[in-house]
């Protein structure tokens, strides 16, 4: 009985398709898939740096140092001072494992292009010195931030925010955000792949399709949230969240870092 219906296999389906696509330069789906893949890779391996004793720094101290350094760089008008911070940063980077070092260094040229594109037209407004100074400072800040990003994971960040006495609800939201960022990126990655595989020609309603993708993602998000809530309720969630504020002990590298930062601050004001 069942097999009978396959006798009506339509002609077009039993003969090979004679299709030649039109040439079109449109690779944004592939691009986005690449970006999502990069994002997903962040969730997997970053344990390497933390296992190195030298870099097992207290995230809170690190964030404070990072912000202080950005602030000092941003305010400084002294080329020697900028130079000193550059040296300090590169020294720190030099102590990282090779892989992390490369990720930080790889960002520099890309960033330089962006900064230059932004600043170059202003040659007409100011002088070369100002332009160079701006580029140097912006680039330095990027390196400072990259260093922080490369030595801290999502989970370190949460610990830092707890230390900063963010309201529990915000920490809870951030906690869920990070967990679900992985799940949603995986979904979006699969959806983008699926769309790419079926994009065999010209899509005249590209925005429609892409928007549908995000619409579905939102609906899935919403139903996931409801499921998650029932799971939480089943475990006795009452609407209150308490976090134990874990104490991270300071080690030698934290103290060194703090001393260097204090030294840089005093240097700045002299």
């Amino acid at each position: 009985m069942k097999n009978q219906k396959y006798l009506n296999m339509p002609d077009w389906l039993s003969s090979p398709e004679n299709y030649s696509p039109v040439k079109q330069k449109n690779t944004f789906l592939q691009q986005n898939r690449g970006r999502l893949l990069n994002l997903l890779s962040l969730f997997s391996d970053k344990t390497e740096t933390t296992s190195q004793p030298l870099n097992r720094q207290n995230s809170f101290i690190q964030l404070l140092t990072t912000i202080t350094l950005i602030l000092l760089t941003s305010l400084s008008r002294n080329i020697s001072f900028i130079w000193i911070i550059y040296m300090y940063q590169f020294l720190q980077i030099a102590l990282l494992p090779k892989l992390n070092m490369l990720t930080i260094l790889k960002r520099i040229p890309i960033n330089l292009v962006f900064v230059l594109l932004f600043i170059l037209p202003s040659f007409f407004l100011t002088d070369a010195k100002t332009v160079i100074f701006f580029v140097l400072k912006t680039n330095l800040i990027l390196i400072i931030v990259s260093y922080f990003m490369n030595t801290n994971t999502f989970f370190d960040i949460i610990i830092v925010l707890k230390k900063c006495y963010f309201p529990d609800i915000i920490i809870f939201i951030i906690d869920i955000t990070i967990k679900y960022l992985k799940i949603l990126s995986e979904s979006l990655y699969a959806m983008t792949s699926a769309m790419e595989l079926r994009s065999v020609g010209v899509n005249r309603h590209q925005y429609q399709s892409l928007s549908n993708l995000f619409g579905s993602l939102y609906l899935k998000t919403k139903s996931t949230a409801l499921e998650m809530y029932s799971a939480m309720e089943a475990r006795g969630f009452t609407g209150n969240y308490h976090f134990t504020r874990t104490k991270q002990r300071l080690n030698l590298s934290d103290i060194t870092q703090t001393c260097i930062t204090i030294f840089l601050i005093t240097l700045f004001f002299n």
Partner: peptide, 27 residues
């Protein structure tokens, strides 16, 4: 795959049904 004509022809010839159908349906 850099050449969009190759990519599109290839994707037309090889069809893929994902394990999770949810990710495949967006209309």
């Amino acid at each position: 795959f850099k050449n969009s004509v190759n990519a599109k022809k290839f994707h037309q010839q090889v069809g893929f049904v994902f394990q999770n159908s949810d990710v495949q349906l967006f209309n």
